[in-house]
Amino acid sequence: MQHIGSTILRVVLGIIFATHGFQKFQGGIGFTADYFDAIGIPGFMAYIVAIIELVGGVAIILGLGTRLFGALLTVTMIVAIFTAKLSVGFIGADGLAGYELDLALAAIALYFALAGASSFSLDSKLFGKE
């Protein structure tokens, strides 16, 4: 049963990240780059983050490179918390979202970075590892 729960969690995490990465490109990556510049992050990092989220999200869904993409997504969320969300607080304020969701996503991604995918993954089927 743990493999089923882990697989559900992995797929949902992947969907969330893939959707966010896709949205950054669909909405015009320039808007995200401008936002990054406004908060002191070089604008070109928007492309890197969007690619990590999109490709990493799809890979997590498939269970391919789960530990690697789990680690990259964890770092992405930690940076988001400290650069964009920490000042707003855990719950948020004045209509701005806090960092509670980012923290949950970081924790889930970290779980996969440490534990691997599960037997229901391409990592397991192709490389015999979870």
Rank of each mutant, 00 (worst) to 15 (best):
A113T: 13
G70H: 10
A97H: 11
A109M: 07
F22H: 03
I108A: 08
V58L: 14
V55K: 01
H3A: 13
V79C: 10
L96Y: 12
F112C: 05
L62E: 07
I16N: 01
A18L: 12
I81P: 02
F44Y: 14
S118G: 11
F17Q: 05
V12G: 00
D102M: 04
M45F: 15
G30I: 10
S124A: 12
S87F: 05
R67M: 15
D34V: 06
A59L: 15
L101K: 09
P42K: 07
A80I: 11
I78C: 07
A104I: 07
F25P: 00
L86G: 04
I51E: 00
M77D: 09
A33F: 02
I15P: 01
S6T: 14
L103R: 06
D102H: 11
G21R: 06
A59S: 15
A59N: 15
D37Y: 05
G40R: 09
G5S: 08
T32V: 14
F25K: 02
V88P: 00
L64A: 09
G5W: 02
F17T: 08
S119D: 13
T66W: 15
I78H: 07
L122F: 12
T32I: 13
L54R: 01
S124K: 04
G116C: 15
I61A: 10
F25M: 07
L86T: 09
E100T: 11
L103K: 05
I81M: 07
I29R: 00
A84C: 05
S121A: 13
I78N: 09
S124W: 11
V58Y: 10
Y47E: 02
A84W: 04
Y99N: 14
V11Q: 03
F69E: 10
G128D: 07
F127K: 06
F22I: 09
A104W: 00
V49K: 02
A18V: 12
G128A: 08
I48M: 10
I51S: 00
L96A: 15
K125Y: 04
L103I: 02
I91S: 03
A50V: 04
D123Q: 03
L110A: 07
G63W: 08
M1F: 10
F22P: 01
H20I: 15
I51Y: 00
T83Q: 06
I81G: 01
R10F: 00
G21Q: 09
S87W: 04
T74H: 09
S119M: 15
G40C: 10
G89L: 05
K85C: 08
A115E: 12
L126H: 01
V49R: 02
A97P: 15
R10Y: 01
T83C: 01
L54V: 05
I78D: 05
G27D: 14
I8C: 03
G21D: 11
I61D: 02
I41P: 01
L103S: 02
F127I: 01
I29S: 04
A18G: 08
A106D: 04
A106M: 06
G98F: 14
I16Q: 02
I61Q: 08
G89M: 06
M45Y: 10
T32D: 03
F120H: 10
G95K: 12
S6G: 10
A84Y: 03
Y35E: 01
I29V: 12
Y99V: 14
S121Q: 06
G92P: 08
I52T: 09
K129R: 14
A109I: 11
A115H: 12
V88T: 14
T7C: 09
A33Y: 03
K129G: 02
T66A: 14
K85T: 11
V79E: 10
